[in-house]
Computed example of a mutant assay.
Amino acid sequence: MASITKHHGSWQYRVSYRDQNGKPKFISKSGFTTKKAASIAAAEVERKYHRGADLDQHNITLIEYWDRWLKLYKSGKHSRITEARYSTIRKQMVKYWGEDRELKSITKSDWQEFINQLGETRSKDTVGKLNGYVRSMVDAAVDDQIIYSNFTHNVVIAGNEGRTGVLKYLQVADLKKLLNYCVEFADYDQHIAYYLIATGALTGARYSEVLGLTWDNVDLDKRIVHIVRTWDYRYNSGFAPTKNKSSVRDIDITPELTDLLARLRREQREANLAQGYRDDKQLVSRSMRHNLMTSAAINKDLRLVERDLGISPAITFHGLRHTHVSYLIANHVDINYISKRLGHANTTITQTVYAHLLEDAREVQVQATLDALSQL
């Protein structure tokens, strides 16, 4: 039941209801310029109540709902790296909106102003990710009938280009030098990093995926590597899920990489037998000292090899993934296959990340087409 009253020159409503435990409660709001406006707002609150909305959340703040949404849908369901982002996003929202800003009071224009301010000091990629996480939260708020529409939809993502448009990868000649070096000098005792570097370059797998490989997921007979999990090398907490569902995939490997992995398995088994050591996880990347290389360690070894080979500019292990794609695109491999090989959810992601490489390949094809037509 709603009551409409005038107070200090403006109109207000008061809606009485019972919560989910049957306890009497009320919601009130003032500041309406007309009695009709207050009545319409009160009627909407009553409509929500009769449709099953939880009115206890009606005045919930942005931060309160964010915390509740995380607890219900996200906490404990993702990697520690991903969950750390939630804390960072929360800090940014508290800094701008404060702790008390009601969720229902935020308009699309308000949110655009927030996005614009973030973009002054951050990359578009960072701002876009934040907006994407909050969009999912606000979708839930719409479903909970707290608000009517999602104020994050179709905002203009602000920010500088950062490093998103710059992909570092090796030219073909340098890639060949790197692979030849790794194959020649890979050694389980001293240089297991070379095995991992070659694996990354020839599969395009992420470093966490390479570390997460176990021997039962390396089919040397069929020459297939099954990516089914990753290894949390940042926190060293063990196996972790892949980045997303599409990252679970099979990667066909070359005879050369097959031989190299067979060599690693043989050396690893011989060393374990001599040491009386048994790895219950059967990790491909387990070293002679029974540990796994950190990201910093593998990148240090990679830089040393690049320096010895005169490769410049140097790349990181993740640059091997870009190099892998670059080589496939240059050799006209179908983008759909490349996307699946990388574990991307769809080709749009691949095309976005590697747009400039695809454009270079397109220009080559354009010239080849024109040359062919000119011969008619």
Results as ranks from 00 to 15, higher is better:
residue 281 K to P: 02
residue 92 Q to F: 10
residue 196 L to E: 05
residue 331 N to T: 11
residue 153 H to C: 07
residue 359 E to I: 04
residue 86 Y to G: 09
residue 264 L to V: 03
residue 140 A to G: 11
residue 336 N to T: 13
residue 364 V to F: 08
residue 156 V to C: 00
residue 255 P to M: 14
residue 180 N to M: 10
residue 51 R to P: 00
residue 245 K to T: 12
residue 344 H to Y: 05
residue 153 H to Y: 13
residue 369 T to F: 12
residue 320 L to R: 07
residue 77 K to A: 08
residue 70 L to S: 05
residue 9 G to M: 06
residue 327 Y to N: 08
residue 64 E to C: 05
residue 257 L to K: 03
residue 141 A to Q: 01
residue 21 N to C: 05
residue 85 R to A: 13
residue 314 A to M: 14
residue 338 I to T: 01
residue 48 K to G: 08
residue 342 L to T: 04
residue 324 H to L: 05
residue 228 V to Q: 06
residue 323 T to E: 05
residue 71 K to C: 07
residue 181 Y to F: 14
residue 8 H to C: 10
residue 334 D to Y: 09
residue 255 P to S: 09
residue 222 K to W: 09
residue 360 D to F: 07
residue 245 K to W: 09
residue 365 Q to L: 08
residue 110 D to K: 03
residue 265 R to H: 10
residue 130 L to E: 11
residue 172 V to M: 11
residue 101 R to I: 06
residue 30 S to W: 08
residue 5 T to S: 12
residue 13 Y to A: 07
residue 303 R to M: 00
residue 241 P to A: 08
residue 325 V to P: 04
residue 259 D to P: 01
residue 192 I to E: 04
residue 368 A to R: 06
residue 111 W to L: 10
residue 239 F to V: 14
residue 179 L to Q: 04
residue 36 K to F: 00
residue 67 D to C: 11
residue 214 T to W: 01
residue 229 R to A: 03
residue 222 K to L: 12
residue 126 T to L: 06
residue 176 K to F: 10
residue 64 E to Q: 10
residue 267 E to M: 11
residue 250 D to I: 03
residue 185 F to W: 15
residue 289 R to M: 13
residue 29 K to Y: 00
residue 298 I to C: 07
residue 168 K to I: 07
residue 285 S to K: 02
residue 139 D to H: 08
residue 117 Q to F: 03
residue 225 V to A: 04
residue 126 T to W: 02
residue 342 L to I: 06
residue 221 D to N: 12
residue 119 G to M: 04
residue 275 Q to E: 15
residue 261 L to Y: 06
residue 115 I to N: 00
residue 170 L to R: 04
residue 170 L to K: 04
residue 344 H to W: 05
residue 45 V to A: 06
residue 52 G to S: 08
residue 255 P to V: 15
residue 313 P to D: 04
residue 151 F to N: 02
residue 362 R to I: 06
residue 311 I to P: 05
residue 306 E to H: 09
residue 167 L to I: 10
residue 21 N to K: 14
residue 244 N to S: 15
residue 18 R to L: 08
residue 368 A to Y: 11
residue 138 V to N: 00
residue 97 W to T: 06
residue 105 S to Y: 09
residue 89 I to F: 13
residue 56 D to R: 09
residue 59 N to E: 04
residue 226 H to Y: 10
residue 302 L to C: 11
residue 110 D to E: 05
residue 63 I to H: 07
residue 193 A to E: 15
residue 338 I to Y: 06
residue 266 R to V: 14
residue 145 Q to T: 08
residue 209 E to Y: 03
residue 106 I to A: 12
residue 313 P to G: 06
residue 338 I to Q: 03
residue 60 I to R: 01
residue 171 Q to N: 14
residue 178 L to C: 07
residue 136 S to C: 14
residue 315 I to Q: 03
residue 63 I to W: 02
residue 310 G to T: 11
residue 42 A to T: 13
residue 173 A to N: 13
residue 7 H to Y: 14
residue 376 L to M: 13
residue 65 Y to C: 00
residue 1 M to A: 09
residue 81 I to S: 15
residue 154 N to K: 10
residue 117 Q to I: 01
residue 132 G to N: 08
